[in-house]
Amino acid sequence: MTVERVAKQDRDDAWHSGRDPGHLGDGRLQPCSPCLVPLFLALYLCSAPLMAQELIVNGSLPDVALTRNEALLYFTGRLQLWPNGMPVKVFVLPDSNLLHREFVKSVLGLYPYQLRRVWDRQVYSGTGQAPILVGSEQEMIERVASTAGGIGYAHSEPDDGRVRPLEVH
């Protein structure tokens, strides 16, 4: 239940609330009464390890596992072409999004602020471009599905034949 609610708050941009799912759900749960805080905290702690992240790519790309280094090079813009010659199009959620934070940490092996630092340096020194920002996980899946060479991430393998999950090892 917590996982679902967290997934729904994709549009949330507020940094300061990024770590506390108790404040992020639908309006009915707010304001958070003091007695509910330990409950939400317990739910959050229990659910965190269960929240998986999948790297997803457009279905036109071959089903070949990526190394963590390759995944990182795609997401930091240092590899602009797929092995089949197609341009790489990176889609990301806002930095404050929990799925984004977990994906960056556990799949790419970076802290989210480090990835932001790499992008900022590229964007403001003219040596690279920012990834394409999407507003929700649903939009992420739709954009990856409809963009040749698209790469992004999701909580679980999407139920969409145009998107392919790739293993990262």
């Binding site: 602009q80 072409l81 341009p87 790489v88 964007v123 403001y124 003219g126 040596t127 690279g128 471009q129």
Partner: peptide, 18 residues
């Protein structure tokens, strides 16, 4: 105050200015 523009006409090319 800064304003920049960048364009990638091909995957291996980037043009940018600020």
């Amino acid at each position: 105050l800064g304003l920049n523009v960048s364009l990638r006409p091909a995957p291996t090319l980037l043009i940018s200015a600020q």
